[in-house]
Design a protein around this nucleic acid. Structure first.
Lengths: 337, 337
DNA sequence: CTCTGGCACTCTGTGTTCCCGAGTGCCAAG
DNA sequence: CTTGGCACTCGGGAACACAGAGTGCCAGAG
């Protein structure tokens, strides 16, 4: 159906189109790549490729442009992820190593990714539900008020202020804190609800109402924050890409956390690259944009995802290389801290 | 120099230009506003206004457009801040009231402001240095490691992980925590350094090295985070505004925290509006954009600033009204929580 | 001294036409 | 199956004309 030469032609079309941003014609192809055949032959191959929907010509007398299907084939079978240069790798390492806390790691990662790919980068905060509890703290603040602080093994901190119905002495709080920590230490966040359920039994009768209040807030926090936090950077790159059409839609999508979440996609194995090309992605406002994403995590568990968003016409091998590399380094940094 | 009628003409030009986005001519002016004089007279006034640099014509045979100087005069003397409608006020109130923690208050505020003004909104997190300490917590995490958590009266939480040089028993940590809290409770963040300086004296000899490590990190946190955190939203509105030229510059500026900080301006009294028009602002990439900002805070202290950024050609009275209103409501919410 | 109507002038933006050139599809020969 | 040749198509730029909006200036009327 598609012999080797046709595939080579498709590859050449994608490469040329990505670098020139102009429909590519048979003559130009024959000149720039030594395919060993004449323009006429290439034209025949092009006709076949178009027949099957891999390329498309905007106007009767124009060159060809890859379709989403064409890019897909290119990504799947015609290209290899391009590793970063040594200099780039070192730059990543030193840049990320300077971060002092989770916020800063995420911040630096997203900027790094944007700069490296010259596209819009998106990073999801390490997921709450896949982390484990490192510590729970209950801090009295003012009268009949405590602050609940939850610290996870990824360094993430969630806090909530809670109004209590009665005065509670300092030592009772301390006891509650101790019990909570013994039960929950190292517990996976998704297991917290069941663990917590049997907890009141271990407390003196008098403390149970207070504990109930606090625990319900704790659970609420877990559920509510299930909508994960996202950060993006590099929107300026959008203006440079000749997007123009639909730029507004793209910017809107970026501010919609929910859409963005969905775009990063479901987990697909640690450091495994997910590529969504143009119409493959569910959100209509993003026709014409592709997403390259990967999971990252410390050890062997995927904690969250990160990726970039750019025009369908992007340099996939390079972009994929950058995303994969950054995902790995972030994982290392998280594991080390 | 500028009689009342000339001022009226200028006002009319600004209003028309803002609403139509087209250079406004003498005839159109005479039609739409009943100034009681003929187009010819208006032309004379326009000539005078142009002479003095308040308006400008893009081409010989085009209408007039306000200059930055013209907008300035308009804002200072020819317009009044337009209060929000009752419905809008109620919407703000209910929308902001639903927020549970500081992150969410800020997030909601910035979105609200963007939506209300249809421009890019920027909100600065309540300043650390102007808040006071509500609680300091030291939490052991793993071997020879503690996490330092600092909670301010505005609900902001800073945390840092610290590696210790020696093992430290739980009770010594507890003691240190207690001492720290007694000293620092309610202390203004800017006073922390001096307060902390005399603190080691209150500790047993053996704890001083550990305390020193922790305290130095504490101070470092304060200094480092002096570069305040900023959040923005509504970039999609940029695409709608016919910016086009320079959009890239604007997006870049938005991602430069430092530039953005400077734009929000120095403090100018609580809820006092600051307006910077086009070339008045220091950053060259933002020619053609204006900033409307205000301080907000709880009680009578300004904690931080917020504002919007849009094309010079914006509806100043409405925008100023929205910014002022949002600043006030956020202040109330912060005070109440 | 100020306002007004009239008038000639100057542009910009738009629509039309025309033509070049890149690129194609097809065909017949190698 | 490949190739050179050839007629055809169509987009986009250049040249041009033209209508319309807006201006400046002047002379006459309050």
């Amino acid at each position: 159906m598609l012999d080797d030469r046709k595939l080579a032609v498709l590859r050449a079309i994608v490469e040329d189109y990505v670098s020139t941003n102009e429909p590519v014609g048979s003559k130009a192809l024959a000149d720039r790549h030594n395919l060993g055949v004449s323009p006429a032959t290439i034209r025949n191959d092009m006709a076949a490729l178009e027949e099957q929907g891999y390329i498309h010509q905007p106007h009767t007398s124009a060159g060809r442009v890859p379709t989403d299907k064409g890019y897909r084939l290119f990504v799947d079978r015609l290209s290899q992820v391009k590793p970063l240069s040594g200099a780039e790798r070192r730059a990543i390492e030193t840049f990320l190593a300077g971060a002092v806390d989770l916020d800063e790691i995420v911040m630096r990662t997203v900027r790094l990714l944007a700069q490296l790919t010259r596209q819009v980068a998106v990073v999801q905060y390490p997921s709450l539900t896949r982390s484990t509890v490192r510590h729970v703290e209950i801090v009295p603040v003012g009268e009949r008020r405590v602050m609940l602080v939850l610290i996870t093994n990824t360094g993430r901190v969630e806090q909530r202020v809670i109004d209590l119905i009665e005065d509670v002495a300092e030592d009772r709080i301390a006891n509650l804190r101790a019990v909570l920590n013994t039960c929950l230490d190292g517990c996976g966040l998704s297991n917290v609800p069941e663990t917590v359920a049997e907890l009141p039994e271990r407390l003196p009768q008098e403390d149970r109402p207070v504990a109930a209040t606090i625990l319900s807030v704790l659970l609420e926090t877990l559920v509510e924050r299930h909508e994960e936090k996202l950060v993006f950077a590099g929107t300026a790159n959008l203006a440079a890409a000749d997007f123009s059409v639909g730029l507004r839609d793209v910017l809107e999508a970026l501010e919609e956390q929910v859409v963005l979440m969905r775009l990063l996609g479901e987990t697909g194995g640690l450091s495994e690259l997910t590529v969504r090309i143009g119409s493959e992605n569910p959100y209509t406002g993003l026709r014409g944009t592709s997403i390259v994403a990967a999971g990252y995590g410390s050890g062997d568990k995927e904690l969250a995802r990160l990726g970039v968003l750019g025009p369908t016409r992007m340099d996939y091998p390079v972009t994929m290389g950058a995303v994969r590399a950054v995902a790995r380094y972030v994982g290392q940094i998280l594991a080390g801290s």
